[in-house]
């Protein structure tokens, strides 16, 4: 396990470094100078030079790259071209919205998907088994922002029971108000996320229901619930947990889009604004934080799976799969 942990940590660190490099290269390979974002049409050569000096794009590329990595190591993500404020603290402020949104949506999606997926498999011979399956098939095809629009129309514009968007200026000082403004976004993401999760839970449950060990346990006199609890659950949990990491990352991305629907001041809207204004430090900063988050979630999910599955635990330091 220790060797695996070491390998996996080394891989994580390598990935983080490569991801940071990739971001730098992709954003620098583009034609045009990032300094253009600072300039108006018809700027004099002196102004151009000053702008380039200000953001450091007059330095040779390796030096720029070095400065970027050194900044990352100090958790310094640079200064926004537009607001002239440091990007790091701004991202931290936005995460106050995005992180609760992601976690609440993820939790709700799991709470919906576990019973529904189980029911769809367990009762696949009744009318509602295939129906639940069909609904989840539909769910994975629906754009998440469209669900958001429809929910806003019904619950905010027609019924007027929930806010259509926005987030309290004082953040979580009034938790009730903050939560209220997150209800529709959370439901939106959770509905779409649970659709794909249901399919994994259903598939894992079907495998368990058709297994010999469950039949043996039943033949030895265990009740259905008892056999499922003792044998079914821990077997079905392995594939589901491995997929949860990916789903958590996907939820985070769903949040990026859904924030725009509900005009929430989160990381996603920050990125969209940054792209619209060619604010490279903001784009770089948000993408680097998001990618790191996705990589770290993947790392945690892999470790969780190792700890849960004794077959993998025994396979110490085993090869890549």
């Amino acid at each position: 396990m220790a060797r695996y942990l070491l390998r996996r940590t080394a891989f994580l660190l390598g990935s983080l470094l490569l991801a940071a490099s990739l971001l730098f290269v992709l954003l620098r390979l583009l034609p045009g100078d990032p300094a253009n974002a600072l300039l108006t049409v018809g700027a004099t050569p002196e102004q151009v030079a000053a702008a380039r000096r200000q953001i450091g794009s007059d330095l040779p590329l390796p030096e720029q790259f070095g400065a970027w990595l050194a900044g990352l190591a100090r958790l310094d993500l640079g200064t926004s071209f537009v607001s002239r404020l440091p990007v790091g603290p701004e991202i931290a402020e936005r995460l106050v919205v995005t992180v609760p949104l992601t976690l609440l949506s993820f939790a709700l999606a799991v709470v919906i998907a576990l019973p529904v997926g189980f029911l769809a498999a367990w009762r696949s011979d009744r009318w509602y088994g295939p129906l639940l399956n069909g609904v989840s098939q539909l769910g994975i095809a629906v754009p998440v922002f469209w669900i958001g629009m429809l929910l806003v129309t019904v619950f905010a514009l027609r019924l007027r029971v929930l806010p259509a968007g926005g987030f309290p200026r004082e953040d979580w000082a009034d938790p009730g108000r903050a939560l209220t403004s997150l209800v529709l976004p959370v439901v939106t993401i959770a509905l779409v996320m649970s659709a794909s999760l249901i399919r994994y839970v259903r598939s894992a449950t079907l495998d368990v229901l058709g297994s010999d060990y469950l039949r043996t346990a039943r033949a030895l006199g265990a009740s259905f619930a008892g056999a499922m609890w003792r044998h079914g659950l821990r077997n079905a949990a392995v594939p589901v947990v491995s997929i949860l990491g990916i789903e958590l990352a996907t939820t985070f991305l769903g949040a990026v889009v859904v924030e725009s629907v509900f005009t929430l001041p989160g990381l996603g809207t920050m990125l969209v604004e940054g792209i619209a204004e060619h604010d490279y430090p903001v784009i770089q900063g948000v993408l680097v934080v998001s990618t790191f988050a996705v990589l770290v979630i993947g790392f945690a999910a892999d470790l969780g799976q190792r700890l849960m599955d004794p077959r993998l635990r025994a396979h110490v330091g085993g090869g890549r799969s």
Binding site: S15, L18, A19, L22, L253, V256, L287, S290, T291, V294
Partner: peptide, 9 residues
């Protein structure tokens, strides 16, 4: 690593 970069990002 490429896969860790989500499509949309």
């Amino acid at each position: 690593i490429l896969i860790a970069f989500p499509t949309l990002l």
